[in-house]
Amino acid sequence: MNTDTFEPVIIGFTCNWCSYRAADLAGTARVKYPPNVRLIRMMCSGRLDPTFVLKAIAGGADGILITGCHPGECHYLEQNYKALRRFQLLRRTLAQMGIRPERLKLVWASAAEGVKLAEEITCFIEEIRALGPLDWPALTGERIPVASGFISAEEGGR
C-alpha cells in the first residue's frame, strides 16, 4: 500500500457506561475526530475478549483501541482491571507475533470526557499512521496452490 495515501483502520472497543457515551458527547458537542476509527460498543471493557482483538487484526485492522472507565469507577466494580490485565498480556503475545505493542492502546475515559477521548483517538490515529499499515494477510477461504509432480517423480516412479 502506498504510505502517502495510507488511512489507518482502527477498531475501537468502547464501554457502554463511559467511553461510548464520551464518544457520543463528542458528537453532540461537535468535537471532531477523524473517521478512521470504528467504535464497537460493549457493556463493559471487561467484556473485551482477546479473540476480538485478534479477529480485528486478522481482518485487516492497523490498530486497536480499548477504552473503559477510570480505575475504581467501573460500573461492574472491577472488570476494567480485567481489561487492563488482558491488554498487558495481549501486548506481550502480539510482540512475539511481530506486531508492535503500540498498535494496541488502552484509554480510560469517563462519560464526561468527550474532548479527551476525541484527542486520544486523533493522537492514536497519527501514531498508527506513523507505524504504517499492518496488512495482515487476508485469510478467509484461501486454499494453497499445489505445485507439482512429486507423485510421478518419486523414487521408483515412472
Binding site: P50, T51, L54, K55, R85, R86, L89, T93
Partner: peptide, 15 residues
Amino acid sequence: IDYGARLMTAFASVI
C-alpha cells in the same frame, strides 16, 4: 475460536 485468546482471558482473570 482462538485457543490462545481463551487462555489469555483465563490467565489475566486470575492475576
